[in-house]
Amino acid sequence: MPPLVYVCVRPQAGAAAGEYESFRAAMRRDDLAQLDLVREPLPDDVFDRYAGFVVGGSPFNVTDPESTKNDVQRRVEADLERIAARAAAGTTAGMFTCYGIGIVTRMLGGEVTRAYPEDTGPTTVTLTAEAGSDPVFGGLANSFTALTAHKEGAGAVPEGATLLATNEDCPVQAYRVGDRLYATQFHPEPTGRAFTQRMAIYRDDGYFDARDYDLIAGRVLAASVTEPARLLHAFARHVDR
């Protein structure tokens, strides 16, 4: 079976390298391939080469004014929509995280809005009743801690999607489309240590007050974030099946 592939959409090479290692460890896949959409377009044969895609986060925002998006961001968004459309149709599998949930939501005709940002750090995520029978979310605790840092979110569950996880600050935390496409607003891949290293890279990008780095990092390191990694491992097994 072709391997799973990590899809990088981060211009910052250090953040991308750390994110890849986090996905590889959480999914328990030493053979996890890499595809960097910032530096190369989606290959024509990509859906023959890989059984499934895991899409990382990005400092890009779907809601950025079109006039401010450069050619790379526009191409990245178009290529991600191609992957999402194939996963929605059931011809591949996809797990889109953070920035990626905005791509999927827009592709499905839903609203992406700046009304539901979340502060950098740990948050509590609660599963819906529908998550209990889901092949990926079904084995998780009903409520768990995850890590977030985002400026936008889905305004509502897109038509045709099943809400799987929620919380008060950002009600659309995760959903499924069909049985092959998943999207999460929270970051499922990093350990606390890996997240603080990413925070250091983005400390001046407006996600948090740079002066509060040590305070926020302390909260992150004190949080238990075991369930999100179990989610990614379950997704990898789901793709295998």
Score class of each variant (00 low, 15 high):
4 L>H: 05
6 Y>W: 14
7 V>Y: 02
9 V>K: 02
12 Q>Y: 08
14 G>T: 14
17 A>Y: 08
17 A>E: 14
24 R>M: 13
24 R>I: 11
25 A>C: 00
26 A>K: 03
29 R>Q: 14
34 Q>T: 15
34 Q>M: 14
35 L>G: 04
36 D>S: 10
36 D>G: 12
39 R>T: 15
40 E>F: 07
40 E>T: 15
47 F>P: 08
47 F>W: 06
48 D>Q: 10
49 R>K: 13
50 Y>C: 03
51 A>E: 13
53 F>S: 03
53 F>N: 02
56 G>Y: 04
59 P>I: 12
59 P>A: 08
60 F>D: 08
61 N>F: 10
64 D>N: 09
65 P>T: 12
67 S>M: 11
70 N>P: 12
71 D>K: 11
72 V>G: 10
78 A>R: 15
79 D>Y: 03
80 L>S: 09
85 A>L: 10
86 R>M: 05
86 R>Q: 13
89 A>D: 15
90 G>V: 12
91 T>F: 00
96 F>V: 13
97 T>P: 07
98 C>G: 10
101 I>F: 01
101 I>K: 02
103 I>N: 02
107 M>Q: 13
107 M>N: 05
111 E>W: 07
116 Y>R: 03
124 T>V: 12
127 L>V: 00
132 G>L: 00
135 P>R: 01
135 P>G: 08
138 G>S: 01
140 L>Q: 04
141 A>W: 00
142 N>S: 13
142 N>I: 00
144 F>A: 03
146 A>M: 04
149 A>W: 09
149 A>F: 14
156 A>C: 02
158 P>C: 08
159 E>M: 11
161 A>F: 07
163 L>M: 04
173 Q>I: 00
174 A>F: 00
175 Y>T: 08
180 R>H: 14
180 R>K: 15
188 P>K: 02
189 E>N: 10
190 P>F: 06
190 P>Y: 08
191 T>S: 15
193 R>H: 09
199 M>I: 12
199 M>P: 03
199 M>N: 04
201 I>G: 05
205 D>Y: 07
208 F>C: 05
211 R>I: 15
212 D>P: 03
214 D>M: 09
219 R>P: 08
231 L>A: 03
233 H>N: 11
234 A>Y: 00
236 A>L: 07
238 H>A: 06
239 V>P: 04
